[in-house]
Design a protein around this nucleic acid. Structure first.
Length: 274
DNA sequence: CGGTGGACCTGCTGGC
DNA sequence: TGCCAGCAGGTCCACC
């Protein structure tokens, strides 16, 4: 599922169904995720506490709990959350079930186990190791072409890698990095430090635009992944370049290309992006 | 310091 | 039909 728009769509879907409800027993079926599941902390801090609201920071989902710490969930590559009846059968890779009032459970499922679950103290969050080094939120007012221009001076990394560096800007993953660069007309291999102020302005606008647009359509679903409600996210068919190698560019009809950068696929138009 | 590549896992697809 | 390399939307860390 999960870049910023998918996590944000999930947050918006879950918030009205979970805010105000009380957590019950936590059942852990698999303790080995990206980090070992902190079982003792989950059992100690969650049962009996009300969920106040859901927040998102970068690609992390945070459940603020009444009078206590926050539950943190990251979906990694294949993480999913499902709200189900407590008696419904466990599916393959259902790793943790968070009991809820009303005989329901929130289940965390993650085939590849790159996701993580943790508990953070309310005050400790900014200093927590997961959050300490995170860069700017791309949908916040702090994100601007000017700021990115300044941060990128002297950087020789290709712009694609720079956009995906969470220490600079969070939430932009492999799909939306390609999409934003296409919209801005910038070649993914261009050095970040060699993009001028005017083009950074366009690029920042493009990042914000593609993320907003994707959230609006409920995120992207590719292959067999599903959104929270079981609906496929509506944005997949609107992707301009991602996963469209050899298809004609929508602007100039040149066949789109796929290259590999830092081990990840990048898609772009060799004519429109310079 | 800054940048790249491998590691962590499982599952699906496409080419032979 | 069956097998297997290659690939998948993330992040961290060792190494150059």
């Amino acid at each position: 599922m999960p870049e910023l728009p998918e996590v944000e769509s999930l947050r918006r879907a879950l918030q009205p169904r979970l805010a105000g409800r009380r957590l019950g027993r936590v059942r852990i079926h698999q303790r080995s995720l990206r980090y070992p599941v902190p079982a003792a902390a989950l059992h100690r801090h969650l049962p009996g506490r009300r969920i106040l609201r859901l927040r998102r920071r970068a690609k992390y989902l945070l459940f603020d709990l009444e009078d206590g710490p926050a539950l943190v969930i990251h979906l990694g590559m294949t993480g999913r959350l499902a709200l189900v009846g407590s008696r419904s059968l466990l599916e393959t890779h259902d790793h943790i079930a968070f009991g809820l009032d009303g005989r329901q459970e929130l289940r965390f499922n993650d085939a590849r186990r790159f996701g993580l679950v943790d508990v953070v103290a309310p005050q400790g969050e900014p200093r927590h190791r997961l959050f300490r080094h995170l860069g700017v939120e791309p949908l916040s007012p702090d994100f601007s072409g000017d700021a990115m221009y300044r941060l990128s001076r002297g950087r020789r990394a290709p712009i694609k890698a720079f956009l995906m560096d969470a220490r600079i800007v969070v939430g932009v993953g492999n799909i939306y990095a390609s999409e934003a660069l296409f919209v801005a007309g910038i070649h993914p291999r261009r050095a970040a430090g060699r993009i001028g102020p005017a083009r950074w302005q366009r690029l920042a606008g493009a990042v914000r635009h593609v993320l907003d647009e994707a959230i609006h359509h409920g995120g992207t679903t590719l292959r067999d992944f599903l959104n929270f409600g079981g609906d496929p996210g509506g944005y997949g068919e609107r992707l301009r370049v991602y996963d469209r190698e050899d298809e004609p560019c929508e602007r100039c009809a040149t066949p789109l290309r796929r290259i590999v950068q830092s081990g990840r696929s990048t898609y772009y138009c060799p004519a429109c992006q310079v």
